Simulated assay, not measured.
Amino acid sequence: MNNLRKTFLSSLSLLLILALVISLTLPTVANVKAMELANNESIETAKDIESITGTDEIVQSENSNSAYNTVVENELSTVKVPNKLEEPIQLTDTESPSESLGISLPSEHTDAEAIKTDNGTIVYDNSESSVALAVQPTDEGVKSLIKIKDATAPKEYKFEIDLPEGSKLITSADYLGEEYDTKEVFIVNSENIITSLFSPAWAKDADGSDIPTYYKVEGNTLIQVVDYNENNVFPIVGDPNWVKIGKCSAALAWFIGSNLFAAAKIIKVKKYINALGGFRESAKLLAGAATWEEKLKIGGSAFAGLAAEISGVAALAVCKK
């Protein structure tokens, strides 16, 4: 009888140990599968995004810490991309840290943590959301990308901007005037000078077709509206592309924002900026030629006109180098 009892207790102990092992193992297996699924989703999202954006503009960095997945330093700013989506992208001005700002991604659409691909795209994705988000640091700033997976996704995406004191978010239509609207969105300081900008909104579907899209501004919130329909091929990709103002850009920004020049002259400059495709493109042309004479030969008549209008402005001398 005693032997039988011992055998029973021994068997019971083994069963309890086995149950404990199983209970500890199953969640681990489930977690591994969940992680594999998340990685697969992120890899697929990165492929969809990079097939449209390419990877040439991505700046990679090995720098990271517990809070940030990636830390990229360039000539104009330091870009810190968070591990968790609820934290903003931190953008620190290299020369003026007080001009730093934050960009919060539309976190209501996914709660995934960051996964960085070999090409440097940082992806936030999960299988339960109709939207995935990604970040690509660049030499000029940072791209905040949206991947719309299917027609159940929203058409509006809100990016909360944590602005420096005294700064504001303003559309180019409000800043330059409706007639000279470049479709960009500017961040201007307390002196009404552009310090950084978001390039014109764009969106493409899986076939590479352009999708109607535009920005709205509500206080410190940048909203990208993507007006897709049932005829579009999913996924759809778009992005607010934040660009820090460089030296030539700053000089041009000062010219149109300082109110020190005749209204007729500023109107002409606004006209040329619009014709050249926007403030960012105009500044890049100014910075792209080796000499002032060369600047007059590139960009067609609009650029020649812009160069002629601002050629006597001392602040723009830096662009002649």
Rank of each mutant, 00 (worst) to 15 (best):
K116M: 13
I193S: 10
S127P: 06
I146E: 04
K168E: 15
A112W: 04
K149T: 11
L145T: 06
H109C: 03
D111K: 13
T138A: 04
A112Y: 07
P106E: 12
G102W: 00
T110F: 09
E99A: 10
E113W: 13
G166M: 07
D162L: 01
D111Q: 14
I161V: 13
E178Y: 00
K147D: 15
D125M: 04
T182N: 06
T182F: 02
V131I: 15
S172G: 12
G120V: 02
S199A: 09
Q136I: 05
N119Q: 14
I148G: 10
K155F: 09
E160K: 11
S98W: 02
E99C: 02
T152D: 14
S167N: 15
E184C: 03
N192D: 14
N192V: 04
I122R: 02
S196Y: 01
I148K: 08
I103F: 00
S190E: 15
E165W: 00
G102D: 01
L169I: 09
N126K: 11
E179K: 15
A112D: 07
D150K: 01
A114M: 11
S100H: 00
I115C: 04
S130C: 08
T117I: 08
S199C: 03
D118L: 05
V142D: 14
T152N: 13
T152G: 12
K149C: 10
I161K: 00
I122S: 13
S172L: 01
S127Y: 13
S190I: 09
I148Q: 12
P154Q: 11
N126I: 07
N119V: 05
E179H: 11
I187S: 02
I148C: 12
V185I: 12
I103G: 00
P164G: 07
E108P: 09
D125A: 15
I115L: 14
H109M: 07
N192Q: 07
D181P: 08
A151Q: 14
S104T: 12
S100G: 04
K147I: 01
D139F: 08
A114Y: 12
L101I: 00
E165H: 04
E113N: 15
K143R: 11
V131H: 05
I146S: 07
P154L: 07
D174Y: 05
G120C: 12
L197I: 14
E160I: 04
S172V: 10
T182C: 03
L176H: 11
T121I: 10
E178K: 11
V123Y: 12
T171Q: 10
K149L: 13
N189S: 06
T138L: 05
K158C: 04
V185M: 06
W202H: 11
G166N: 14
F198I: 05
K149M: 05
S127K: 11
A151T: 14
G141C: 09
F198V: 06
S129E: 14
V131F: 11
E160C: 00
A112K: 01
P97D: 01
P106G: 08
I187C: 06
V185W: 02
T121H: 08
G141H: 04
K168M: 13
I187D: 01
K147F: 06
T117G: 09
K116Y: 04
S98P: 03
L163K: 00
G177C: 04
S129W: 10
T171E: 03
V185Q: 05
D150R: 03
V123L: 07
S190L: 10
G102Q: 10
E165C: 03
L105D: 05
